[in-house]
């Protein structure tokens, strides 16, 4: 592989890793804190992309204003999911998970009926042009994703480890009953968790909308990757999810460049299977999944 191709692939895998990290962190957070396993997480990502399509490509808003609206919209969707699906099925994690599979169907149909199923929607690139690094030309739009994702992940880290609310959330993930005895409102915490989880998925979808085409079914592939990432990183481990997201980002991008997309996905799943056999608790996990 030539240097220019290598640098280009490396940059693309950083971009992809950042997006995977944003998506997977929401899934891992919701599962870690309140055992809420969201199958519709990929559809949250899809809704984020559609909000940008509607506001930026159709209504002509500035790109980042559309992104700024997509994040709270999907956060509210996450909170509604907590209130209407996860709270009533609290006693059974799998019931909540399967019910959100139904939600995924509903969101796909709604997106298809509102904006049409036919051709994939193209969102024009807000920043046209490319940046040259070591002879490789990389789309500037793609590069902007890396700092945004890192800033979001850093903010999330500060929130979880340096604020009272974040500490409350982590307390719930370790022992909900003990946390409740300390006066932490578990319901409020799970509502907040699903809000954050939705917000990060919505942000990822919004940022990716100019790069990938927007369709009602775009969440399918993303949710598979997010699951793989969460298992490799260790269920409920936020650090693990970020590390695994970049590993899978590298595997996918290099796999796609050297072979093809299908082989890349198969490599990612095979890697997950190997991790499960040799280290069932995942790279950073404490307990077996």
């Amino acid at each position: 592989m030539e240097l220019a191709t290598f640098v280009q692939t490396l940059a693309n895998s950083l971009v992809l890793g950042s997006i995977y990290a944003l998506v997977a962190i929401g899934l891992s957070l919701a599962f870690g804190v309140m055992r809420m396993a969201n199958f519709a997480h990929g559809e949250f990502y899809m809704v984020g992309a559609y909000v940008v399509y509607a506001l930026y490509a159709l209504a002509g808003w500035p790109f980042y204003a559309a992104v700024a609206v997509a994040v709270p919209v999907v956060a509210v969707l996450g909170m509604l999911t907590e209130r209407l699906i996860f709270r009533p099925t609290k006693s059974n994690t799998l019931a909540g998970f399967m019910a959100t599979a139904g939600l995924a169907f509903i969101l796909q149909v709604l997106a298809g009926q509102i904006w049409g199923v036919g051709l994939a929607k193209q969102v024009p690139m807000p920043i046209v042009g490319a940046t040259e690094i070591f002879g490789a030309l990389i789309s500037t739009q793609r590069l902007t994703i890396i700092p945004i994702a890192f800033a979001t992940l850093a903010a999330l880290w500060v929130f979880l480890y340096r604020t009272k609310w974040g500490r409350g959330m982590r307390a719930c993930s370790i022992d909900p009953d003990a946390a409740a005895l300390q006066g932490i409102d578990i319901r409020k915490m799970s509502l907040l968790t699903m809000g954050l989880s939705g917000a990060s998925a919505g942000l990822a979808g919004a940022l990716m909308s100019p790069i990938y085409s927007v369709t009602p079914y775009m969440g399918h592939g993303v949710v598979l990757i997010a699951f793989i990432v969460v298992i490799i990183g260790g269920m409920a481990s936020v650090e693990g999810a970020v590390a695994a997201a970049f590993i899978i980002g590298f595997v996918h991008t290099f796999g796609t460049t050297i072979w093809d997309g299908i082989t890349a996905t198969m490599l990612g799943v095979a890697f997950m299977a190997v991790i499960l056999v040799i280290r069932p608790q995942g790279l950073f996990g404490q307990n077996p999944v």
């Binding site: 799998l94 298992i231 997950m272 077996p288 999944v289």
Partner: peptide
């Protein structure tokens, strides 16, 4: 894997 882990690992 068990429970939720089984569910998503079986899918993958």
């Amino acid at each position: 894997t068990v429970g939720f882990g089984y569910f998503i690992a079986s899918f993958a």
